[in-house]
């Protein structure tokens, strides 16, 4: 029953590996903030935050092992929705 939903269960090894990656990425992002890389900085911190979020979503929140189509597509739907809301608002902000 429950095993049909979650076939490959993550174990301690996976969880701690993800944890180590999250701590490591935090260190990278803090370090990168003290470097002088100009306008690229915001892209770097956002990319790192995005990577960390994906790790949490995939492993801690088990999306990687998800079988239900609805749950699988929810995050893409939300990200696209938010991107569209922000993008269309910027058609005003950028050209006002």
């Amino acid at each position: 029953m429950s095993d049909t939903k979650i076939e490959r269960k993550p174990g301690y090894r996976t969880y701690f590996a993800v944890y180590a990656a999250l701590v490591g990425l935090t260190a990278v992002t803090v370090t990168s903030a003290s470097l002088d890389i100009g306008r690229l900085a915001i892209a770097v911190v956002l990319a790192i935050a995005g990577t960390k979020s994906v790790l949490v979503l995939l492993y801690f929140m088990h999306l990687r092992y998800e079988k239900r189509l609805l749950v699988k597509i929810l995050m893409p739907i939300v990200v696209v929705t938010l991107a569209v809301f922000i993008g269309l608002t910027y058609t005003d902000i950028l050209y006002r």
């Binding site: 269309l88 005003d92 902000i93 950028l94």
Partner: peptide
Amino acid sequence: GSLVWGHHMYVSGQSDTA
């Protein structure tokens, strides 16, 4: 329908592009 909200704001001073 979720992409058209700006049509409430034509005379609000938002950008012409919008």
